[in-house]
Structure formats: C-alpha cells, structure tokens
Design a protein around this nucleic acid. Structure first.
Lengths: 142, 142
DNA sequence: TGAATTAGTTACCGAAGCTAACTATTTTTC
DNA sequence: GAAAAATAGTTAGCTTCGGTAACTAATTCA
C-alpha cells in the first residue's frame, strides 16, 4: 500500500495547474500578438520601472541570451526603448508610450481572465498562497 | 498612484515560482537522464496505474502528438511497455520493472529536493495550497 | 452497412529555454 | 597606472516541448 505524501502532491498539483494556465494565457496574449515571456517583461517594467537585461534575467530566472532575444522582439514592436546610463555597458530599458498603452490594454483582458479563474478563492486565501509561493521561491534561490 | 491588485500578484508570483522550480527540477532529473515531461508521465503511471496516451494527454493538458513523442522516448529507454486491450486502437501503457526502479530511484532525489524547498511551510498550509490550486485548475478547465 | 468518431502517428513549425564563445566596458588588484 | 578580472550584452547553435494539419486503423453509431 503506497501513500502519496503531501509534499509530492503539492508539486504535482503545481505542475498540473501550470500547463492549462499557460495554455489559456498564451491564447489570450496571442490575440494581442504577444507571448508569455514577452508579457512578463512588460509586467516587470510596468510595475518595477526601468531595468537592464541582466536585472530582468536574474529576476525571472532565465539566462542572459534568452532575455536578449525577448527584449529584441519587444523593441521591434516598439514597446521598449533604451535609456542611457553612466555605465556604457548597460542598456537600461523602459516602456515606450506605445508599450504602456499595450500593457494597459492587455492588462484588461488578463484581469478578466485571472479574476474569472480565481472564482471561489477569497482574497485572504490568495494572500496566503502568495506568501507560501514566495517562501518556496526564496528557498529555491537561496 | 497605481495599486497592484491581489489577483495580479497571485499569478505573477505563480509564474515567478515556476521558472526556478523547473530549473532545479531539470538539473535533478538530468542527473538521471530524464526531463520534466517524461517525469510527469512516470509519476502518473506510478501513482494512477496503466493508461493510454489519450488519458495522459488529457490529464496533463497537452496534445496527443506531444504525448506520443514523450512516450516513445520512455519506450526507447525501456521504462514503458504496452499492455493489450480489447480495443485494438488503444495502446495502454504501464511501467516496466526497470521503469519502476528508475521511478523509485529518482523519487528519492525529488523527495529530498521538494522537502528541502518546502522548509517552513506546514503540512496544513501545503494542503490548503493544494486545494486552492486544484480549484483554480478546475475553473480553467471547465 | 456506411458514416462518424476515436486512438494514435507522422511531418513540420515555433517559443523559449540552454551553453559556449565572443566584444566592449568597468572594476579590481598589484 | 597598467594588467587582470569581472560584468553587460550579443551571436550562434542546440534542445525540449509545446502546437496544428493531415493521415491510418479500429470502433461506434445511425
């Protein structure tokens, strides 16, 4: 008789939630010509202000070349622009006016989607879950 | 003044946890010559018993061709075998003895990893989080 | 029994990870 | 202050793992 342990179930459920979430997210973003990786960059810049590729890459746990590519696509779309800094190696990025507008537009659809699938989960529960996920993330990164 | 709403934070944190988790998982699995997609199939068969590719694909929210490929790789490794059924279209899969052994071996490493990164999260909190993730998954799939 | 459905496959494409190796700056060290 | 080390970013090339379209073989339905 095999007993599935709680911690095993936890991560299995985590993976099982990720796939359908990303699927629906990509369909939604696709309507605006965007993908998940691009969206997370827009989100970061909109909420945390101008950043360099290295900051973005570290924050999102991807390698620099991955971030370079994502940023170049967003630049082609003219959603991002570089702002000069003292350090000439750095390329600090910020949203253009167009980028901000697109972010706000997409935000409306995503809000609707996210609120919809959080149906039945109280704000208190959401906050608790955020706290747990943050703690795990920190355990992984430390 | 912009206020980030709780539901936005929830999914942002969800995505932020996924990347480093998958990174570490893939490194761990890599030591055993496996990848995430393969691992989730082994997990399913070990815990839920023999299944068809369609069952696996539906359960994991991927398309049939994606599952075909993952299964073929696991078959090349001789971790899976087909068991005959009445319906000759079906290819019901189960773990071979080798597959079971590999699953158990990898399970030990993964257990250690998962318990490690759940440090500080009580079982009660884990159960609550599982329940929340399941509810969201069902909201997405319905 | 003929039509529709279902299981599985093949071929092909794309997003988004990765490493290795490079250039151009900046910082550190002696 | 010059040489060495470190850091930011890029390019090239690879892999995993998603997807769709189109197909065959078997089963179910009308």
């Amino acid at each position: 008789m095999i007993l599935i342990q709680t911690f095993q179930k936890f991560f299995y459920q985590f993976l099982m939630l990720y796939r359908p979430f990303e699927n629906r997210l990509n369909i939604l973003l696709g309507e605006h010509g965007l993908y998940r990786a691009q969206w997370t960059v827009l989100y970061y810049l909109a909420n945390f202000g101008p950043s360099t590729p290295v900051e973005l890459a570290n924050y999102q746990s991807v390698e620099k070349p991955t971030m370079t590519r994502t940023i170049h696509r967003l630049k082609e779309l003219e959603y991002l622009e570089t702002i000069p800094t003292k350090d000439k190696r750095e390329k600090k990025m910020q949203l253009t006016a167009l980028g901000k507008k697109v972010y706000e537009d997409v935000r409306v659809s995503i809000d609707e989607f996210e609120q919809d699938i959080l149906e039945g989960i109280s704000e208190e529960e959401q906050l608790k879950a955020i706290q747990i996920m943050k703690a795990i993330q920190q355990n992984i990164l430390k």
